[in-house]
């Protein structure tokens, strides 16, 4: 009867059965809200982001926040040990997380973390990549598509320039990085399905 929300941001992934779904959700919300606010602050620091209309800023953040968080918290996933360290400091094995109902989403997250981690990005490269991730989010609901495309183009150019100038002998890194964008889209969809399942059938 325990209610499970096995998200690394959740400080109490397994709640006692006595707690209502609403209470479990509100407690989880308090855990993810600071992380979401940090993504908004990060977005505001992206040169050009605040020149977009507020409506489009909200749309990009709505569809891109999870993806940015996935990149940011990639290091919580240890593909070698097959463990995930939650923000509450507790480390869970792959087996125990499977038992908590994390199946294909978890596999995809490990896969993504391993691929991104293998690229060995520097912190500033990672930040620029997260900016690209955010402005590459789902365009549904975007009004000024041209302005978003222009910003995306500028950020991709900046990322390519940074990476190729640092590693002139490795022409494969930048394309490999761009290939992670569709992975993140897929992860985003899987994650949304998981959350909706909790909300519909708690």
């Amino acid at each position: 009867g325990a209610k499970v929300l096995a998200c690394p941001l959740n400080s109490c992934p397994v709640a006692p059965a006595s707690r209502s779904s609403q209470e479990v959700w509100e407690s989880f919300s308090q855990c993810f809200t600071p992380a979401v606010k940090e993504v908004v602050e990060f977005a505001k620091s992206i040169p050009g982001f605040q020149t977009l209309s507020q409506h489009d800023q909200v749309m990009l953040l709505k569809s891109g926040t999870f993806q940015v968080l996935m990149v940011r918290f990639c290091s919580l996933f240890d593909p070698k040990e097959r463990t995930v360290t939650f923000l509450n400091g507790q480390t869970y094995s792959l087996g125990s997380l499977r038992a908590l109902g994390m199946g294909s989403l978890l596999d995809s997250m490990f896969d993504f973390s391993e691929k991104l981690g293998s690229l060995g990005l520097e912190p500033d490269e990672m930040a620029l990549f997260m900016a690209v991730v955010l402005v590459s989010a789902d365009r549904s609901g975007i009004v000024e598509v041209g302005a978003v495309e222009q910003l995306q183009e500028n950020l991709i150019k900046a990322l390519r320039s940074l990476i190729t100038s640092r590693r002139p002998d490795d022409s494969t890194l930048f394309p490999k990085l761009l290939l992670r964008l569709p992975d993140l889209r897929t992860l985003n969809n899987q994650h949304s399905d998981k959350l909706l399942a909790f909300r519909i059938d708690p």
Binding site: V36, K37, V40, K44, Q54, V58, L61, K62, T65, L196
Partner: peptide, 27 residues
């Protein structure tokens, strides 16, 4: 339930965080 971000309260958090910024700039 077609829009998870709205239903999860994410949109509210985002709007408030962005609007906070507008208020900061006005100050």
């Amino acid at each position: 339930f077609s829009d998870p971000a709205s239903n999860l309260g994410l949109e509210d958090i985002i709007r408030k965080a962005l609007m906070g910024n507008l208020e900061d700039r006005q100050e």
